[in-house]
Structures are given as C-alpha cells and as structure tokens.
Design a protein around this nucleic acid. Structure first.
Lengths: 138, 138
DNA sequence: CCTAGATGCTCTAGTCACTAGAGGTTCAAG
DNA sequence: CTTGAACCTCTAGTGACTAGAGCATCTAGG
C-alpha cells in the first residue's frame, strides 16, 4: 500500500496533481487509512502510470478518460482506441507543420539585427508588419 | 476613428480579446465617445496589429509588452528585441524536437492495431507502458 | 422623428491542467 | 514522547482567452 507521496515518486506525477485527478473524477477516490490518508494498490499505480504516459504523449485528460473507459470492455475497443491515437497523431503533425513555418519566420527576423544601424529596429518592424513575411504562418 | 468592432475586423483580433488586452494593461485604455464607446485611431490600429502578429509568431503577452516598451526608446533596443526573438526561436525549435519524438511514437502505436486480434488491445497496452517505447519522449 | 436590430457596455464565471499557499492533522523515526 | 516530514482540505492564481447575462447606444430605413 503506497502513500500519495510514494505513488508520486513511483509515477512522476506530482502530489497535488494526483489529488486534482481524483477531484475531477479521472481516477476513483482512493481508499483511506485510519488517519484519513490516501492509500494506493498496484491497480492505482497502473492507472496513474497509464495517465502519465498518455499525458506525455500529448493526450488531453478527457481523451484519457475515454481511453480508460474503453479498457473495461473488449472487442471494438481497440478500433476506438486506435482512432483516438490517430486523431492525436494528426494534431501533432499539424502542430509540427505550423511550428516549422514559425521557425522559418523567426529565423529570418533574427537575422535582421546584424546589419542593423539606422534609426528604427528592423526586428521590431518585422514583428509589427506581417506583409514583410515570406509566407503564411496562420 | 474606429469602433471596437471595426478594429476587430481590421486586425483579426476578437472584440472581447481587445477589451481583455485593455483590462490587463497591454494596450492603453481607449478614448471614449459621448456614449462611452471605445474609439481607436491609426496608432491604436498599429499597436493591435503588432500584438496580433507577435501572438501569431508565438510570443507571450508579457514578452509582447516588453517588445512594445522597447519601441519607445531607441539605441540598444534592437539588441534586446533580437534577444527576445532568439529566445522564442529556441523555444519553437525545442517544441518541434519534442513533437517529432511524439510523432514517431504515435506512428508506432497506431500501426499496432492492424494485426490486432487476440484479447487485449495493443494500442491501449502501448499507451500504458512506456517501457515499450523506442525512445524517450520527455 | 421613430423604431428595429446590430453593436456596444460592464461584470461574472468558465475553460485546461495544473500550481501555490494557508492552516491544520497524522505518521515514522529516534 | 517529541520532532519534522508528509499528509489533509480549501481557496485562489496562472495564461489567454471565451461565454453569457442584462442593459445602453448607435445607425439605417421608413
């Protein structure tokens, strides 16, 4: 039986975050000992580990709740889980695309400073004026 | 003189967002007409345009406040602005790196479903168990 | 000049996923 | 039995907005 601190160290999820997950119903209320402190078993450890890993992969808490709900039943579950994972993959790819455009634009802007004498700062001008940009960055 | 709605259409920043920027002090309180409605001139339009563009480039509101503060004085400003822009570039690059690791991992996971017969869902198992991952994804 | 409907105003509360702090209780080691 | 770490609940704050209630004002058509 683990205390909340031990569970935190075992999973890498901070103590207040564990309590927060309980508050919002993502994990079931933990069993309590005589002094009203939370105690966790292996199943609790596994569930929090699942949540941690899914969070690291960028899933939102609501999606994680869905994924854990699926885990109960079997059958078409795998397909549903796969769809949620694919949706997440699409989101990740879209964000990568967008960030690469930003990278290109920021690269251009940060090179403006070098020759920058004269009165006005080219960096600030570039930040203020989208029409100077090479491409769209949504 | 633009109304807040006209300013919103001109810049692409939503009306409540403009009021929010005023609330937090990012833009100065707008002049009001006889009926207490906000009116904006060219300078207000320019400032909001600057904010919009910098937001699109991923800068936080606090950084944008700094950048606009710099715009007043001249001299070493350009260097300071350049540093803020470079810091943002570094952040963007770090996020790209991280997202690419996630992309690889999610790609792997979403390919598990194909042969997936048997009792347990491979996708859910992979989500729950970091030790199956090929690399680190922070 | 009047009216209808769009637009504006303030204020409060909600979003997401936590994080911080106050003020008090319980546990574990010596 | 004492001490200090860990635990408890509760409230409030973060960033960058978004939504809604309930009212006032503006503008174009008749």
């Amino acid at each position: 039986m683990l205390s909340i601190g031990a569970l935190s160290r075992a999973t890498g999820v901070k103590v207040p975050t564990i309590r927060y997950y309980e508050d919002i119903g993502l994990i079931a209320p933990a069993a309590r000992n005589a002094g009203n402190q939370r105690r966790y078993d292996q199943a609790g450890l596994d569930r929090l580990g699942f949540i941690k890993h899914a969070r690291d992969l960028g899933f939102g808490l609501e999606e994680i709740g869905e994924l854990m709900g699926l885990n109960g039943e079997l059958g078409a579950d795998c397909h549903a889980a796969d769809q949620i994972a694919r949706a997440q993959l699409d989101r990740v790819r879209a964000r990568i695309t967008r960030l690469r455009r930003l990278e290109a634009e920021l690269e251009r802007i940060t090179h403006l400073c070098e020759g920058g004498a004269g009165g006005t700062c080219q960096v600030l001008t570039a930040l203020g004026d989208h029409s100077q940009c090479l491409g769209d960055h949504n």
